[in-house]
Amino acid sequence: VVLTTFDLDEYVHAALRAGADGFLLKNSHPDDLARALHAAVGGEPVLAPSVTRRLIGTLTALPTALLPDAPAPTPGEPALTELLTERELQVLVLVARGLSNSRIASDLGLSEANVKSRVNRVLTRLGLDNRVQAALIAQRAGLTGTTGMPPG
């Protein structure tokens, strides 16, 4: 369990990726800290209330298509094809296939800098942190066919 004064999302994410079972703030009431530590020892994850609130806010703000095991988009909810340009979708498909920026540039006739810029725009528009998340989203959306381009 991480105990810190820094209530920053990047610290939370780093701690959880590193295997922490919890993220608590030093300004927590001592009784709350004791209960949280006992819960963590018992195998329960523990998060400071402010962290939980932000995580819930982030999760509920994501389009349904970006969530694990997501159902089909609801009417009025944007699909990936509405959030990204055609070229960004093409780049996303090739990222999902594990291609490097250099290889994507070669395949699409773009410069490597242009591909890097488009990958960054895809991540930003979808609210993602990395290429792995983008690949998972592309796969869930059914964009990883065999042609190298989105279906349709």
Rank of each mutant, 00 (worst) to 15 (best):
G42C: 07
I56F: 04
T58R: 13
V46K: 06
A65K: 10
V95P: 04
E82Q: 06
G109Y: 05
A40P: 13
V41Y: 11
R87S: 10
K26F: 02
G148Y: 00
A14P: 03
G19C: 01
E88M: 02
A40V: 15
S111T: 15
V51Q: 08
V122I: 13
D9M: 14
D32Y: 09
E112V: 15
R17I: 04
D7N: 15
R140D: 12
V91K: 01
L8V: 02
G152F: 08
V1G: 06
D7V: 11
L80E: 13
L99R: 15
S100R: 11
P63L: 00
T85H: 01
A135F: 12
N130T: 07
R125W: 08
L37C: 13
I137S: 10
D31W: 14
A79E: 11
S117E: 14
T147P: 07
G43R: 02
V115G: 03
G148H: 02
N120A: 11
T85Q: 06
P75W: 14
L55W: 10
V93F: 02
V91C: 07
N130R: 10
R54F: 04
E86K: 11
E88G: 00
E44W: 12
P71D: 10
E44I: 09
K26V: 04
V132N: 12
A141L: 05
H13Y: 11
T74S: 15
H13T: 05
N130H: 12
L3T: 02
A138I: 03
D32H: 11
L37I: 06
A96H: 10
G152N: 07
V41E: 09
V51I: 14
D32F: 08
L33A: 12
A141T: 11
T64N: 13
Q133P: 04
L108T: 05
L126E: 05
N27A: 12
T74P: 11
N27Q: 15
A70Y: 14
T58A: 07
A138F: 05
R121T: 04
R87G: 11
I137G: 05
P30M: 09
V122E: 13
V95W: 01
L47Q: 05
N27Y: 15
I137W: 14
P45S: 03
P151Q: 07
G98I: 01
M149H: 12
L59T: 13
D129M: 10
L8D: 03
V1D: 00
L108C: 08
D7A: 14
L110Y: 05
F6Q: 10
P68K: 10
L62R: 15
R140S: 13
P45L: 09
R87T: 12
D31T: 01
G148N: 01
A135W: 10
L126F: 05
L94C: 00
Y11L: 08
L80P: 09
G19H: 10
D9N: 15
T81G: 08
L99S: 01
E112F: 12
A14I: 08
A96N: 09
S111H: 12
L89G: 13
H29Q: 09
Q90E: 12
S50I: 10
A15S: 09
L89C: 10
V1K: 00
D69R: 09
R17N: 00
G109L: 04
G145R: 00
